[in-house]
Amino acid sequence: MAKIVVVTSGKGGVGKTTTTAALGAALARSGQNVAVVDFDVGLRNLDLIMGVERRVVFDLINVIQGEATLHQALIRDKRCDTLSILPASQTRDKDALTSEGIERVMNELRERFDWILCDSPAGIERGAQLAMHHADHAVIVTNPEVSSVRDSDRIIGMLDSQTARAQKGETVEKHLLLTRYDPSRASRGEMLSVEDVVGILSLPLLGVIPESEDVLKASNVGAPVTFASPESVPALAYFEAVARLEGKDIPVTIPTEKRGLFDRIFKKRGS
């Protein structure tokens, strides 16, 4: 039974695309068939983060409008053949996304994949609503920062009222993913703590991704962080989040950088 997951946040720049790529890659690495779908029409970026930007021929809107088949538009990842990406259109008007068209594409994806991860655009407008509409699960990406928490709360309200599941009287399973977290700043009282954010939003915690240089390094080279540096702190945190998304009941840990004295003195040049 395929599961549709929307990765959403309300606020922009909190790590939705990074998260979609990292979770998708981690799920696919275990042999499951995964499609990551970019819903950010006009500002597509998932292709770039995944490193397939030069292989885009057709996109989601081409499929919706019948100009290409789903098979033609899906790009298979070269590092992992169970991972595919459906890019968003960069040039087309976002009104070309119709709810009927998306329903058809989602149904077709459900037949082929185990997991369908939808990368939502920022905001609470139509694009974000369409991205969450068919979701069974929602990953709410939140930074430990007031405006991000507030926007997440808005999105939670929408997930509870405007999705297909909500309209049928069912619920979308919601998960909180706290990203760009700095445990030392939180312990000094300079940053909202994990407990603060969980308490305010009252959502089960999927994981805590610490702020890390590895995320930018991975995006520089066009690879999900769970592929680019699977041993890194953020990758470990994403693997843990994936296990929880699959329903495993494991305690949430916050991986931290273990840097020795020598590393600090002779700070390694970028790798």
């Binding site: 007031v146 507030r150 939180a186 009282g189 300079e190 940053m191 909202l192 603060d196 305010i200």
Partner: peptide, 9 residues
């Protein structure tokens, strides 16, 4: 400041 943030939210 994190307490202030939490209370405001």
């Amino acid at each position: 400041s994190s307490n202030v943030a939490r209370d405001r939210l």
